[in-house]
Design a protein around this nucleic acid. Sequence first.
DNA 1: GAACTCTACTCCTCATTAGGAGTTGACGAC
DNA 2: GTCGTCAACTCCTAATGAGGAGTAGAGTTC
Lengths: 261, 261
Amino acid sequence: MTSGLGGFAPKYQQIAEALRRDIQEGRYQPGERLPAETALAERFKVSLPTIRQAVGVLRSQGIVESKHGIGTFVRQDHRLERRSRCRYGRARSDGKLLTSHLRHDIVFAGTEQAPARIAEAMGISEGTEVITRRRVLYDKETNTPEEIGASYIPADIARGTFLEKRDVVPKALFLCVEDLSGKRYHHARDQWIARSATPEEIVTLGLPQGGHVMHVIHTARAEDDTVLEVSESIWPADRVTIIDEYLIDQEANVPDVPSQI
Amino acid sequence: MTSGLGGFAPKYQQIAEALRRDIQEGRYQPGERLPAETALAERFKVSLPTIRQAVGVLRSQGIVESKHGIGTFVRQDHRLERRSRCRYGRARSDGKLLTSHLRHDIVFAGTEQAPARIAEAMGISEGTEVITRRRVLYDKETNTPEEIGASYIPADIARGTFLEKRDVVPKALFLCVEDLSGKRYHHARDQWIARSATPEEIVTLGLPQGGHVMHVIHTARAEDDTVLEVSESIWPADRVTIIDEYLIDQEANVPDVPSQI
DNA sequence: GAACTCTACTCCTCATTAGGAGTTGACGAC
DNA sequence: GTCGTCAACTCCTAATGAGGAGTAGAGTTC
């Protein structure tokens, strides 16, 4: 059966579009519950699976969130701003973390075999042992998880040190690594990707099924190019905006790589 | 009915997981067609809608792509590297674009009312007229769309100039703007977000339903802080990796904003 | 050989039906 | 008042059936 009157798009898409408009025009406020699926089915005069398919579209777009047994709610799209650099700064070498509004939860510290993506960033072969420190960062007020993070330090720098202990470090991690290695952080390479969340990330970050994450792998090197630390951070993709502010250096050498004009 | 033997996850998730493993372990190669849905339904001994739901999971993760009337195919996950800065560089002021391997298709040039996000970046009110140049970039070899882009130039700089004409500009756009404004590009602010694609983006970039994009808004200013240009670029999220290489300046002032440690 | 048609195959849409599982709030027993 | 029970409500999973629409290839006709 075709939809007959009006639209040429499938019914479920028309319904998704109608609901999306309702939300954008404020008929359903952020945080508010949508009518039950059965009610929507009646309102749009379609069957329940069609409604579910329509709501599924909105879910996959992060516009609404369904809670089993409770209802479907309009999500508020709050994006937190994140600086893309600004990881370091001796201005804060008092030991105060840059992220003091977040609660740091160190979930693991010890020796691990480097996963492929980290090994590649470090320039070592997959499975080589590295010292790993994993953390989850929570908003202190709302107590919601905001970030999954991990730092990987080469074994020859950190093996047998306090970095293998699951304690809070006395000062910013990079300062500890500088002390232990005798070298200073000099240059870095950040690698950003957006991808769909893994099942573990969905659980840890409280994401909806099929949610996406922003994933950055940060490789910090000394002046002699040895890797001092690889760290990664993972955020819910729809809760962050990455901000990067910089001076334009028109004289800089331009690598011959793809880039937008 | 519960799934009975073995798994505790829903059937469709188990099937999605099984297929995902098959793909990752190479039993289905990139570009290859998956068995038809009816065949899969028989193999997994479930009904067709359940198979469709399972395949839908893989689709939403960008692992496979379905083509109506043809079949479902394993996508190859090629991410192109993009430099996050490197927009400028007089080293190339011969006029050669940084993106010479891409075909630039200027789809619009003229006066428009600034959309909200652009107005905010420019510090003007929504609806103010700006000179807009929209483009779509195609890979010269495969002829596939790789990027949607647009540049917005304040009317007092570009109104009545050749920038309103839908022609290729004689040299890099920022050099034209510098000539017209009499000011030089000095500093910039980039704003990255990952979000789900709009219907237009899905069509233009050839994305699967529910695909995601990486969206950057780039605001370039002169030394006196006036905005010279706001430009935006949109890529398929699963086809790009953003690369950022830089020197670490530990003495820099650290803004008091959220940031990973 | 070239163009057309027709068929078989593919994925897509939608209705109907059934039961499972989590949450909330009202009610009654204590 | 407090606690536990239970019913009503919510979303979730799954099967079945029917038809629609796009594609490719075999076969036929010219």
